[in-house]
Design a protein around this nucleic acid. Structure first.
Length: 298
DNA sequence: AACGGGGCCAACCGCCTTTCC
DNA sequence: CGGAAAGGCGGTTGGCCCCGT
């Protein structure tokens, strides 16, 4: 309502970032690491608001960002995840560690939306194949929706990981591998699914071993060498540390959990897989049934 | 060669959630 | 426990660039 904008100061600069500003921001983050964005502008000597700094870092300067064309595989994965999760770009981005949610969102809006519309023009409805507006607009609390999709995501991923689905999505969600291999962990949502598994792990196995593959939950920030910032907006080589989406809350949990299934797995497994096998029965809390296999679009 | 239209992408805006005091 | 602040997310916009006419 009457909430003031985040940047009320008149002297806050807006618009495109200059290489100098980029340099200042990167230099600061290299030294202090991302986080505490409120302090970043003043400490880094930037006339930007904290949000702008965070956005610039996560969408552009953060090492490990892949830019340019999306591969066919990425495209299919996005379509699949969009059908599964709706317009939750951050969640989708967590499965594509090298892409930012902004990138994915842009790509969806500019390419995929049209593509799907085109493809569904023959036998499709108005709303376009991939749209899940109805679900997104469901009068449920965001928290609940999120939980539901997380649960579903966990199920889906588990199904994929176990290769029980005879017609797997474009690429098995790759997330197990991704989370295991890439310490990157833009894992806000991926880790949400992981957290579910982990919670259940703890629940079913109180004496449990805890973290399975800590694989550097917080890798070095110094991955971005000086020249990376200097104009070459191509990002680094390896996905490394996302300081923005991995908040203090999740970054320690980002690795593991799903990488190695808990021993007492069968119960969890059967529950998670229920939805995929059973079709139609109502789960823990009337989990939303995802749209059909998006591979049909291709 | 000039112009117009469309595409693309970086950045902003506003709302919601989470955390802190 | 409640309010304020900070962080995070999705939708939207503005401007640049490319391509077709």
């Amino acid at each position: 309502m009457g909430r003031p904008p985040c940047c009320v100061k008149a002297e806050v600069k807006k618009g495109p970032w200059t290489p100098e500003e980029d340099l200042m921001l990167v230099a600061y983050i290299q030294e202090h690491g991302p986080g505490n964005w409120r302090a970043v502008p003043t400490n880094a000597g930037l006339m930007r608001c904290s949000k702008s700094c965070r956005l610039r870092w996560t969408n552009y300067l953060r090492p490990g960002i892949k830019r340019g064309n999306f591969s066919d595989q990425e495209e299919k994965l996005i379509v699949h995840l969009q059908a599964l999760l709706g317009n939750r770009w951050a969640a989708i981005a967590s499965y594509l560690p090298e892409r930012t949610d902004n990138d994915i969102k842009n790509y969806w809006n500019t390419h995929l939306k049209k593509k799907l519309k085109k493809m569904s023009a023959g036998g499709g409805g108005e709303e376009g194949a991939g749209e899940v507006k109805t679900r997104a607009a469901a009068p449920k609390g965001q928290w609940e929706r999120r939980l539901q999709t997380d649960i579903h995501t966990a199920r889906q991923a588990l199904r994929d990981a176990l290769s029980l689905d005879p017609s797997p999505p474009a690429k098995p969600l790759e997330w197990a591998a991704a989370t295991a291999a890439a310490p990157s962990s833009q894992a806000t949502y991926a880790s949400s699914a992981e957290n579910i598994a982990r919670l259940l792990e703890g629940w079913m196995q109180p004496s449990g071993g805890g973290k399975t593959t800590p694989s550097g939950s917080r890798s070095s920030v110094s991955v971005l060498s000086g020249e990376a910032a200097s104009a070459s907006h191509s990002g680094g080589a390896a996905p490394t540390y996302d300081g923005s989406t991995v908040t203090s809350k999740t970054k320690d949990e980002a690795a593991g959990a799903v990488t190695a299934p808990p021993p007492a797995f069968s119960m969890l497994e059967s529950w998670l897989l229920d939805d995929g096998m059973g079709h139609g029965e109502v789960g823990l809390m009337d989990v939303v049934v995802p749209l059909g296999d998006p591979s049909e679009f291709f």
